[in-house]
């Protein structure tokens, strides 16, 4: 099969699985039926079962992936619509995100050190709460593996979207500022897409938290690695 055919099949297949997962989510709204999770598992299983390498899938997947860049830019729109809230709570958001980012990086380093993992894995895991395009170069500059870093980032995102809402309920974190800040700081854009589902202002707060968290993590990671490792 030619590359174009493979690419088209990958794009159409991914789209159909995504639409299917949206229908499942509409009928059965639960953390474990979240479209990102269901689609990822379905596509992964299909590739594994039919023995299709990831690189082959990405001939089409890369086209979908490309739109992630403009989509991140498009987050400026909900941000703009919620500008009044952002202006009012800017200081609160900055201080809370800093608390979360420091705890995320240090707890990662300390837990990995305790579990006795090698440094290259530790460096790859350090920036997990930053968004992928920031986490990959941060991991690389520390001495980690960028693509492995991306795996941890994605897992942090899925954990946020799937488990964190229940944890928030249990911990009585119900205010939109608390939920939005927590989600954006811990789970970047995957968490933000979940927060956006709850309310637009929660999504906007989460977007700001995500951006700040990425910037703060890239600044504090080298320092905390030096200090704790």
């Amino acid at each position: 099969m030619s590359n174009i055919m493979i690419g088209m099949a990958a794009i159409i297949g991914t789209l159909l699985i995504y639409i299917g997962s949206l229908n499942v989510y509409r009928r059965l709204r639960s953390p474990i039926t979240l479209p990102v999770l269901v689609s990822t598992i379905t596509v992964s299983l299909l590739l594994l079962v039919s023995d299709i390498p990831y690189d082959t899938y990405m001939k089409g997947g890369a086209w979908i992936d490309w739109f992630l860049g403009p989509a991140v830019v498009a987050l400026a729109y909900p941000l703009y619509k919620q500008r009044a809230i952002l202006k009012r709570f800017m200081f609160l958001i900055v201080s809370s995100v800093t608390v979360g980012a420091v705890i995320g990086v240090s707890s990662g380093i300390l837990l990995l050190k305790w579990a006795d993992f090698e440094p290259s894995i530790i460096y790859s895991l350090v920036p997990k709460n930053a968004t992928t395009p920031v986490a990959m170069p941060v991991a690389q500059s520390l001495g980690g593996v960028p693509s492995l870093a991306a795996v941890f980032v994605i897992f942090a995102g899925i954990v946020g979207a799937v488990l964190v809402p229940s944890v928030f309920k249990w911990m009585r974190i119900t205010h939109f500022l608390g939920k939005g800040i927590g989600m954006g700081t811990a789970s970047h854009a995957i968490g933000t897409s979940k927060a956006m589902e709850n309310s637009e202002r929660e999504g906007a707060v989460s977007t700001v938290a995500m951006i700040l968290c990425a910037i703060i993590i890239s600044l504090i990671s080298p320092f905390l690695v030096f200090l704790l490792l």
Partner: peptide, 27 residues
């Protein structure tokens, strides 16, 4: 597998601390 457990624990810690901290200040 332990790596995934560590990401899970650490990520929930981040969400809870930053979320609880901001909610505490708002209240």
């Amino acid at each position: 597998m332990l790596l995934l457990v560590i990401v899970l624990v650490s990520t929930i810690l981040v969400a809870v601390t930053s979320g609880a901290f901001s909610q505490f200040i708002v209240h």
